[in-house]
């Protein structure tokens, strides 16, 4: 392992997860030639931006490397980049964005068929977010891959259009609780699900019935979870009160998992429920794993470092138990 990118990823697997954005910047400064590779391979907490266009209505959208173009991020709400790209040749930029002549505006955007799906997906995952998170911010971004046209057609704003047989997307959730400073509990959850959907050729004829095709999905999910509890000592705390205070405790980090599955695809819009089911299962699984690692594994290690019980007492208890077992066997 001597590739600078691999070394950087190994490094970031060891350094404190709560400082990933700062440390990533440091590494990018060390090897600027790898900036793009680094940004696309390292998951960072999701950024929140405000879409101030008339269609965006001042609402927030989530940003990650997948909706980034240069130093701008595309909002799913209005399909516009923030800040606008190439602002110098765009005095009337705001106007141009609000209209449908989007091809004229710089920045990558999904094809119109995919864009229709993107809007529907955002609606669906907003519902998902309400059900699982109460109030998390969610965003879905889709993008085209080189592909043959699908056997399925999809409705689009310009009428009936050919849907792509393969595309990719990302589903993002972000939630924060508590105050980030001062005493108390603070928590952040950022989840990022990158998927690739590919229609299976010839699958539709297998099932016999019309529209009975299927698709294969590859999913890579990362959850970044940060939890902090602060109980600082106060002036005038009695010794007993201050002894019971924990000071500051922070558990932060991320887990990444992958999965692959096939689902039936009766129509193009079914991609959303297929990906939805997959992400729902994955998040359930990862939530359990986070529970296990955060509150099980790291806690066990603390127990390995120091024992609240007297080790000497434990040793004696074990010896006694052995003795008793010996007597029992006789």
């Amino acid at each position: 392992m001597s590739d600078p990118l691999d070394l950087s990823l190994d490094l970031l697997r060891r350094l404190p997860p709560s400082s990933i954005p700062e440390n990533l910047e440091r590494i990018v400064n060390l090897i600027p030639a790898y900036a793009d590779d680094l940004y696309s391979s390292v998951d960072q907490p999701l950024k929140v931006k405000v879409d101030s266009t008339s269609r965006g209505g001042g609402a927030e959208f989530l940003c990650c490397d997948y909706n980034r173009d240069g130093d701008s991020w595309r909002s799913w709400r209005s399909n516009t980049y923030h800040p606008p790209i190439n602002s110098e040749d765009r005095d009337d930029g705001q106007e141009a964005e609000a209209e449908d002549g989007e091809e004229l505006v710089p920045g990558t955007r999904p094809s119109s068929v995919l864009r229709q799906l993107e809007i529907k997906a955002n609606d669906a995952f907003e519902t998902y977010s309400k059900l699982y998170y109460d109030s998390a911010l969610s965003s879905v971004y889709l993008w085209d891959l080189d592909s043959d046209p699908s056997s399925l057609t999809a409705a689009s704003s310009t009428g009936v259009a050919q849907a792509p047989s393969t595309f990719a997307g990302v589903v993002l959730f972000k939630k924060e609780i508590g105050e980030s400073s001062g005493n108390g509990t603070y928590g952040t959850w950022d989840s990022l699900h990158v998927f690739e959907a590919t229609e299976r050729p010839g699958a539709s004829s297998k099932s016999g019935s019309s529209g009975g095709g299927s698709a294969t999905y590859k999913l890579t999910s990362t959850v970044m979870l940060g939890l902090r509890r602060t109980e600082a000592e106060k002036e005038g705390d009695s010794e007993e009160v201050s002894a019971g205070k924990v000071g500051s405790v922070e558990i932060a980090g991320s887990l990444t998992r992958q999965s692959e599955a096939d689902y039936p695809l009766p129509d193009f819009v079914s991609h959303i429920s297929n990906v939805g089911k997959m992400i729902e299962d994955m998040e359930a699984k990862m939530r359990n794993q986070l529970q296990e690692v955060y509150f099980g594994k790291t806690r066990d290690v603390v127990g390995h470092l120091r024992s609240v019980e007297s080790l000497e007492k434990n040793r004696r208890a074990k010896e006694l138990q052995k003795e008793l077992m010996g007597l029992w066997k006789k």
Partner: peptide, 14 residues
């Protein structure tokens, strides 16, 4: 703890 991820506990009590 860094199996398929990177999770760290950091505590401090003065």
């Amino acid at each position: 703890y860094f199996e398929n991820g990177n999770v760290q506990l950091n505590t401090s009590k003065p």
